[in-house]
């Protein structure tokens, strides 16, 4: 059974006025945090306390708070999305912490994800990678062929879905010691490479998406596997391998 209790915690949070300003870790004390609260509810509570003290609250990205939009993005105690696996920051609960703990909260750190303010970073690099080729070039007329015209083996469809489950939160980049985006790109490349609808453009897609990824300043993959472990959706390294295959194939024929 859930044991309801309140804990007092210390926080060390990255504060940075804007993209150009220098930032620093600041210390805060927060009492009476319910262990049933989510981590972001704890942050809300801290912000309410700051507003009451007429201090500026901490800016952080968040939206759906149910682990699917991919907006929340905190590096907590040295781990992307904190000390639990298979979840986003918004699904992390305070019962993972103990009374008196000091919790470090930092933004995603990557050259390709510059800090905008406090814990908010700019992840539009992911959008640009998607724009470079993360689509099937089909017009939206609805007058395509009937959805059941091309059967897709269930195993392929399931794998494509598992790859497509990526929420684009950037935890893979944040946690990778190389700041590599290959899990994200690999997942997108895989989703389309596994489906007959995506195969037509597979060559162009993988070349363009990888080129854009490199231009954005992400690091390289050294197969540490950290991304797979921290990914809230459990996206598999198989997707990076598939991208490697696709790219090798593409660069040999193109």
């Amino acid at each position: 059974m859930a044991s309801k209790k309140n804990i007092n915690i210390n926080l060390k949070v990255w504060r940075q006025k804007n993209a150009k300003a220098a930032g620093s870790m600041e210390s805060y004390k927060l009492d009476n945090v319910s262990t049933d609260s989510s981590f972001l509810e704890m942050m809300d509570q801290l912000n309410e306390q700051l507003v009451a003290e007429k201090k500026e609250p901490i800016a952080f990205d968040h939206d759906c708070r149910e682990g699917i939009c991919g907006m929340c993005s905190m590096y907590i105690n040295g781990r992307a999305h904190g000390p639990d696996t298979g979840i986003t920051t918004c699904q992390l609960h305070m019962r993972m912490f103990n009374d008196g703990d000091t919790i470090f909260v930092e933004p995603w750190r990557s050259k390709a994800f510059p800090v905008i303010k406090d814990l908010v970073v700019d992840r539009s690099a992911f959008d640009r990678i998607q724009q470079a080729g993360g689509f099937v070039s089909v017009n939206t007329s609805g007058n395509t062929i009937d959805a059941n015209t091309i059967p897709v083996p269930k195993a392929d469809a399931d794998k494509a879905f598992e790859a497509a489950a990526c929420i684009g939160c950037g935890a893979c980049v944040a946690t990778c010691k190389n700041g590599s985006a290959m899990l994200f790109v690999g997942a997108k490349v895989s989703q389309y490479a596994l489906l007959p609808q995506g195969k037509v453009e597979a060559t162009e897609r993988v070349l363009n998406m990888v080129r854009q990824m490199d231009e954005e300043g992400f690091g390289n993959c050294t197969n540490t596997g950290a991304c797979e472990i921290e990914c809230p959706k459990g996206i598999s390294l198989e997707n990076i391998a598939r991208m490697n295959r696709e790219y090798l194939k593409a660069s040999l024929i193109k």
Binding site: Y75, N77, T224, I229
Partner: peptide, 11 residues
């Protein structure tokens, strides 16, 4: 990172 705990996810 000011605080990093990579041993939690990689060798």
């Amino acid at each position: 990172y000011a605080m990093n705990n990579p041993s939690g996810n990689s060798s």
